[in-house]
């Protein structure tokens, strides 16, 4: 598929990954919520960077920052973290 479109495979793996995290942290919904929060902050900052392109040159939240936040959240859940790394653009 073209780089501008999300392929069904990417969509499916995102769905099953979100589902996996949700199920893994059924007893700790705060961890799942914090994960969603990190993703939303990342997305929001990416949008702000796009809108202000040519401005002060801020790059928003980097993939490294996202990864380290998720790493501290998923401590001891190495499989989840490894899988998350597969979604990151420069992992």
């Amino acid at each position: 598929p073209p780089a501008s479109e999300t392929s069904p495979v990417e969509f499916d793996s995102a769905i099953s990954y979100v589902n996996k995290i949700k199920n893994r942290f059924l007893d700790h919904p705060e961890i799942y919520r914090a994960f969603l929060e990190i993703l939303h902050t990342y997305q929001k900052e990416q949008l702000e960077v796009k809108e202000s392109r040519g401005g002060r040159g801020s790059s928003g939240m980097t993939e490294d920052e996202v990864f380290s936040k998720v790493a501290s959240l998923f401590k001891g859940q190495e499989d989840l973290l490894a899988e998350f790394g597969q979604f990151l653009p420069d992992a």
Binding site: A3, E10, A14, I15, V18, L36, Q43, F87, L88
Partner: peptide
């Protein structure tokens, strides 16, 4: 079966966009 809230769906959206960017950066 998937019981997704709007928040879950937007997480799926962010993750699949990340995967797409990754593919774009690898190709």
């Amino acid at each position: 079966s998937y019981d997704f809230t709007p928040l879950d769906s937007s997480a799926v959206y962010v993750l699949s966009s990340m995967a797409r960017l990754r593919r774009a950066s690898l190709s």
